[in-house]
Amino acid sequence: MSMCIKRQIPIIFENAHYLIVNKPPGIPSQPPDTRTWGRTHPGLDPTPLLDRFKTIYCSYKQVELYRTVHRLDHCVTGGMLIAKTKDASIKFSRFLQKGGNKGYKLLRKYVAIVERPSCLDKRFNDQVNNGSHYNSLVSHDGRQITKFKLIDEQCIVLQLVTGKKHQIRQHLSQILNQPILNDQKYGSTSKLTTPFKDQIALHSACIITKIGLQTQTHLIPMKFNNTGKLWSRRYVNEEGEFISQIKDVLIENWD
Results as ranks from 00 to 15, higher is better:
R94M: 12
L44R: 02
T217F: 06
Y134K: 08
A201F: 09
M1G: 15
T162I: 11
N182W: 04
S232A: 15
S93K: 07
G26K: 12
G163K: 06
P24Y: 03
T36H: 07
M1F: 09
T162K: 03
Y186W: 03
K54Y: 01
R71C: 04
P42W: 00
L181N: 02
H17Y: 13
P48M: 04
V128F: 02
H203C: 09
I20M: 05
H218R: 07
N15T: 10
I168L: 08
N130K: 12
D73N: 03
Y66E: 02
V161M: 04
L107Q: 12
R94Y: 10
L160C: 01
G240N: 14
S29R: 09
K191F: 05
T209V: 07
M80N: 00
P195H: 02
P31V: 15
H70E: 02
Q174V: 02
T34N: 11
Q178R: 07
P28A: 13
N15A: 09
K23P: 11
V111R: 01
Q144V: 13
E239M: 14
S204N: 13
L107V: 15
H41E: 01
L250D: 08
L44T: 06
L181A: 01
N253R: 11
K54H: 05
D198S: 10
P221H: 10
G131Q: 04
F124Y: 11
G212S: 08
V138T: 10
L202P: 01
G38K: 03
G99N: 08
T47S: 06
K84L: 06
S173L: 00
K6C: 15
C75V: 08
T189H: 03
W254P: 09
G131E: 08
G43R: 07
G99C: 06
K229Y: 12
L172F: 04
H218K: 07
D121C: 14
G163R: 02
D255I: 09
T162A: 05
R123D: 14
M222N: 14
D121V: 13
I208F: 11
I180G: 00
L202Y: 03
D141G: 08
G26M: 12
D51R: 07
G79I: 06
T47F: 00
M1N: 11
S232Q: 15
N22A: 12
V21Y: 04
I151K: 08
E241M: 15
L250I: 15
R67Y: 02
T194S: 08
T146N: 05
W254T: 11
Q8M: 14
R7K: 15
P195V: 03
D183M: 03
E64N: 06
S244L: 14
T77F: 00
D198E: 09
K164T: 09
Q97H: 12
V138I: 14
G163Y: 06
S204H: 04
N22E: 13
L150F: 14
T217G: 07
H74K: 04
I151D: 05
N101F: 10
W231Q: 10
Y134V: 11
G212L: 09
L230Q: 04
